[in-house]
């Protein structure tokens, strides 16, 4: 990755009202680049999915800390979302479209599919009992 021009790091509790907080924060962070509306919506949606996974799965039945780091280069945004929750046993399986461990709670099993579709790259690292880190990058194609 090229040297970042700007960087932010925030942490917040795994409360569902903070899904919106994370979206607003990433929107504000990239706004200096004048992203297109569709790029902004894609980023907010991908962040919302990653943070929701931390709340619904990683810290299920408990409240923990979610860390979000973002870096901005000339034409790319890098976002890392990390929890120290239960971890994912089988990341490959968890990333399969429509796979969910919580169908009774009306989870669609599309979280990772949305993250994959709405960004340019995604990497997921997880260790049972230690937590999960999701890293996404997206090119910001146009400038006004």
């Amino acid at each position: 990755m090229k040297k970042p021009q700007n960087e932010m790091k925030m942490s917040f509790l795994s409360l569902s009202e903070n899904e919106r907080l994370a979206r607003v924060a990433i929107g504000g962070f990239v706004s200096s680049k004048n992203p297109r509306i569709d790029e902004l919506t894609d980023l907010k949606t991908a962040v919302s999915e990653a943070v929701t996974n931390c709340i619904v799965h990683a810290y299920r039945d408990t409240v923990g800390v979610i860390e979000m780091t973002a870096r901005l280069t000339d034409d790319c945004v890098y976002i890392k979302i990390r929890d120290r929750g239960c971890g994912i046993e089988d990341v490959k399986k968890a990333m399969e479209p429509l796979y969910t461990t919580l169908p009774d709670e009306e989870r669609s099993g599309l979280g990772f599919s949305v993250m994959e579709s709405f960004t340019d790259s995604i990497a997921v690292k997880s260790r049972l009992g230690y937590g999960t880190t999701v890293v996404m990058t997206k090119k910001l194609r146009s400038k006004i």
Binding site: K44, T52, E105, E106, S108, G111
Partner: peptide, 13 residues
């Protein structure tokens, strides 16, 4: 004004 995959779950339900 915004929807993530939770909206899909809402419709499926």
């Amino acid at each position: 004004s915004f929807m993530d995959s939770s909206g899909v779950g809402l419709v499926m339900g």
